[in-house]
Amino acid sequence: MEANGDTAFIVGVGGAMIVICMMMILSLVFIIFGKIMAKDLRLKKVAKPAPQKAADSTEAPVVLKGKLSANTVAAISAAIYQYMDEAHEDENAIITIDRAAKSYSPWSSKIYVTNRGVFKGARR
């Protein structure tokens, strides 16, 4: 392709329009797809049997503003708490990564340290 004003327009404007149109198509596809999935989800919720009434009428579940009752929230919270607690207990007891064992070497021996004066000063 020859480099001139027409090329700049064809590739510049044409290319940008193609990319925007492609993303628009993709966006539309997923908007429709999202709606289908949401509908599918709603249908599943409707098909679910109604929850049984509590045996004791005095302990009727307190319905919160959202969809979950207070009892359900409490049960979920307790389950998560228990799970986290147990997950912690499952950890192994190894707290060090590597055993830092050093074999003896005369090069690192304290007996052969000559500049002891340095340490004497520091201990003062």
Partner: peptide, 29 residues
């Protein structure tokens, strides 16, 4: 939120504007 895809598309305008500018500065296509 698929409509936000359009923002990703809009930012690509930088590529095509620079293409025109690079041609103006004497680079080949």
């Amino acid at each position: 939120n698929p409509k936000l895809m359009l923002l990703g598309a809009a930012a690509q305008i930088g590529i095509f504007a620079t293409f025109a500018a690079a041609l103006g500065l004497g680079f080949d296509t």
